[in-house]
């Protein structure tokens, strides 16, 4: 659900606005969502998104989901948190029922135990179900996209977040925090929340 931003002293960097699926993924030059979906289709709907912490893996996976559905596939998504060593039975049954048509989109696949990962791959192959994963490390699937964050793309994200809000955050604020967090945009955005909050309360207006 996309609701118009609340301009009543909201903070554009609040957690709700940073959730994957809420902000758009910014592709590097020459890449697009359609290209990715084409590449995925060419690889039999199998692929992996890898990259460092806070570089947009979950966001890209969230952006891919409707694009894959637009190609007539049935997408079954799950996000695995720390400690989730196996997939829910219901999810596996749904996968089995989606034979030939489904694509499993799994965020955090590295959380799975090694035999559960093997089982997942085996299931996807025998049931002809696609498999798209987002992971910190290689899941031995066709490489779909390697996420990384640079200053210009990060600033593009920040500008989109600040769209419709007073622009209290400047590009040099972002660059400093991105460098401090070694390219982890998520951490940088959390820092920017505090900065934006401080500046909006003290009435500091950022020069354009």
């Amino acid at each position: 659900m996309r609701v118009q931003p609340n301009l009543d002293k909201s903070n554009p960097f609040c957690a709700a606005r940073l959730r994957p699926g809420t902000i758009d993924f910014v592709f590097e030059q020459g890449k697009s969502l359609e290209q990715l979906v084409d590449s995925l289709a060419a690889n039999g709907w199998r692929g992996q998104i890898t990259g460092g912490h806070g570089t947009g893996k979950s966001t890209l996976l969230a952006a891919l989901t409707p694009a894959i559905e637009g190609r007539g596939r049935l997408v079954l998504s799950i996000t695995l948190a720390a400690g989730h060593r196996h997939l829910p039975r219901r999810f596996l049954r749904s996968l089995a029922r989606a034979a030939g048509l489904g694509v499993a989109a799994i965020d955090g696949v590295e959380q799975l135990h090694v035999w559960n990962r093997l089982l997942l791959k085996r299931l996807s192959q025998t049931r002809r179900v696609g498999l798209v994963v987002a992971s910190h490390r290689s899941a031995r699937l066709p490489r779909l996209y390697e996420t990384a964050m640079d200053d210009s793309r990060a600033w593009s994200v920040v500008q989109r977040l600040q769209d419709g809000f007073p622009p209290h955050v400047r590009s040099d604020d972002l660059v400093e925090r991105l460098a401090r967090h070694a390219g982890n945009l998520r951490e940088a955005l959390f820092d920017l929340y505090d900065l934006y909050e401080e500046r909006s309360r003290t009435g500091c207006v950022s020069p354009t």
Binding site: M1, G21, A62, T65, V75, L76, S77, I78, T79, L80, A81, A82, G83, H84, H86, L87, P88, R89, R90, F91, S94
Partner: peptide, 17 residues
Amino acid sequence: RNFRYYEKKRGNRRTGS
């Protein structure tokens, strides 16, 4: 409508039966 299926966003939730 139009929400993600089977998305579990929190840690410490049990999976499986």
